[in-house]
Design a protein around this nucleic acid. Structure first.
Lengths: 360, 360
DNA sequence: GCATTAGTCGCAATCGATTGCAGACCGAGC
DNA sequence: GCTCGGTCTGCAATCGATTGCGACTAATGC
């Protein structure tokens, strides 16, 4: 349906009529053949000249003509054709659910910048945050023949998918999640971060510490929760499961989690939110209930996003370097693309104490 | 260098060893030629079968064999080759500086989702927020032969670039910025939004209204500023340029702008921040100076990002539908790609009154 | 039964860049 | 003067999907 008879005007008569303005960058990016014709050489020669960075002993006359023709034509190599021939597209695919989340966006930005520096482009997908949709995205990226894939939304305990990803004809690196069985991954030390946050609160004398623990399927959140549990156990504090609330990562999730915890018969005196955005939500919930942070409630977040430092009451948080995480993910992926092995990396975290935590 | 003798295992003997599990998607995405060989037909036939959605009168025997072969091989069409042949990649390029900004990320997400629905992929670049870097990104995208480009970071009063973009061999649509001379664009009614915000404050009795006006080069911010000026003028209030502060869009910019305004000899009683993120920064600045919002200072933001509704003191803001903006940008771009003309669109805005504004 | 029509299939060219191979050409060394 | 090593070029094949053209088959109408 809606089928045009022909795209028309392809190889027929001479150029429509813009031959009159050769000084302005041509609207039609040329081809090697055009350059070759203009310079009076074979396309292969043109190709060699243009990809050769430095001529051993000065440019030959032909080479100079090629260079000039390319300049005049505003030539841009057709990476499609090159990719087809080379079986290498210099493109990496991204599967990043929840791109609106600052953490994901920052990761994305870092990945793109690093990839560009390495001469790679980035094909982005932001599927819904379920594994089926993510696998669909992967299929799409494969069709485009990306050289490798970075994913941030892998769910924990879904090793089926992980194995399928590992069996793909291109390497896959997981970011912002601890290394699983089959896939290399780059993440910050979520476990340690969870411990740090919790121990900070314990050291301030809090014993009833709630946690807004993110979605159950989120691997990073789960590790932070585990760190929290370990810290409590290390202090011989009984685990109270009513203090653990799973919600979404967004502000709304934080509000919900905050209200849930604060409406307990015996509410916590401190809350650890496994991400800063949710922590802001908790702050709002506390405020709505007439509680003052940090006087009535201590609060720790995670990731130390820029917002956190600039809140009316600056947020105590666990800092993770998202820029480095993204860069490292790209490096590991490129290593795998170049025939090496992607290695899992864990980045250090650090507690940044600000104004939302206070001794009991 | 690093040249493998042969990719091996293509159409030769039996599959390496996983022939025992034909149900699992093969790690090597096949080619049309392989399918054709397996089904005993010509590649062109395979191509026709696979792209034909509905067989006029049932599948022919050959077609069925093709389908089965494709299934068995886990065939994924090589979009590179198809794009080369068709001179259409079904890919749109994105030039989105400042992706960490929620506004940009939300736009990006909407664009990607809409594009995917339309059968398009998205090549993302997030260059630094200057026009030179953005034009470099455009060049890169052109090399990849994208079918069209969406940009969100175009600076105002840089018509040189705008004209160059309009002269490109592929259509370009600007998003989140009023239509300029040469380019179609999709934006919300920033002018009206600026007016609404300011008039709201005026109606509450404020007469000394400061504005944290974003970077000078930002077109959307400038329009909001203009709306602010118009509203003041309509109320016969003298323009006081010391009440206009240009900063970055991020929280830090808001903090800076807030402090600047609040440290004036005669500080404003209300502030309009042209984006919510900066508004949060202003709130922090006020808090740091011992001022209470909204008792001592009224505050209006712009964009109504999800965070705003869930702040301890929910932010009054001008709502713009970023999801729709992204979707519309894609629609207009696709229209242009299909040979039509991209039309500029302006989306309505609405004031959402919450708790940061109060009568004087 | 024969001619017309519609649909199917194979052939080969095409999109544009890349690269192995082989011939041409250069200067140098004997 | 001749040969050797090295560089520059051209030729042609290749990557994989698509499509116009022509041949062939099947179905329909008279």
């Amino acid at each position: 349906m809606a089928q045009k008879p022909e795209t028309a005007a392809a190889p027929d008569g001479g150029d429509p009529g813009n031959a009159g303005a050769p000084d302005q960058p041509e609207p039609t990016l040329g081809t090697l053949a055009q350059i070759a014709a203009m310079a009076g050489v074979h396309p292969s020669t043109a190709s060699r000249v243009l990809r050769q960075s430095e001529p051993a002993r000065g440019w030959s006359a032909a080479a100079l003509r090629v260079l000039e023709a390319a300049e005049q034509l505003g030539y841009r190599s057709n990476l499609l054709a090159a990719g087809l021939r080379n079986r290498r597209t210099r493109t990496i695919g991204l599967v990043l659910p929840r791109l609106q989340d600052y953490v994901v966006a920052a990761l994305c930005q870092a990945i793109e910048s690093t990839a560009r520096l390495g001469g790679y482009h980035v094909l982005l997908t932001t599927p819904p945050d379920d594994m089926t949709a993510q696998m669909d995205s992967v299929e799409l990226l494969l069709s485009r023949r990306v050289d490798g894939i970075i994913m941030t939304g892998l769910h924990r305990e879904e090793s089926v998918f992980e194995e399928r990803l590992a069996a793909l004809p291109v390497p896959v690196v997981a970011a912002n999640r601890r290394d699983g069985a089959a896939l290399a991954s780059v993440a910050c030390d979520d476990l340690e971060g969870g411990r740090l946050a919790t121990e900070h609160l314990l050291s301030l004398g809090h014993e009833r510490i709630g946690i807004v623990a993110g979605p159950r399927h989120a691997a990073s959140a789960w590790d932070r929760l585990t760190g929290y549990r370990e810290a409590l156990a290390a202090h011989d504090l009984a685990a109270d499961e009513s203090l653990v609330v799973h919600t979404q990562f967004d502000v709304g999730g934080g509000v919900l989690g905050g209200h849930t915890l604060l409406s307990l018969a015996e509410p916590p005196t401190a809350i650890f939110a496994v991400n800063d955005t949710a922590a802001v939500g908790v702050m709002a919930a506390a405020y709505q209930r007439g509680l003052h942070v940090p006087d009535d409630l201590s609060l720790v977040g995670f990731n130390d996003i820029p917002l956190s430092a600039h809140l009316p009451i600056p947020l105590t948080s666990v800092r993770s370097d998202l820029g480095q995480m993204g860069a490292l993910a790209v490096h590991e992926l490129l290593r795998a693309i170049d025939g090496g092995e992607a290695r899992s990396q864990t980045l250090p975290v650090a507690l940044v104490v600000r104004s939302t935590t206070k001794a009991r």
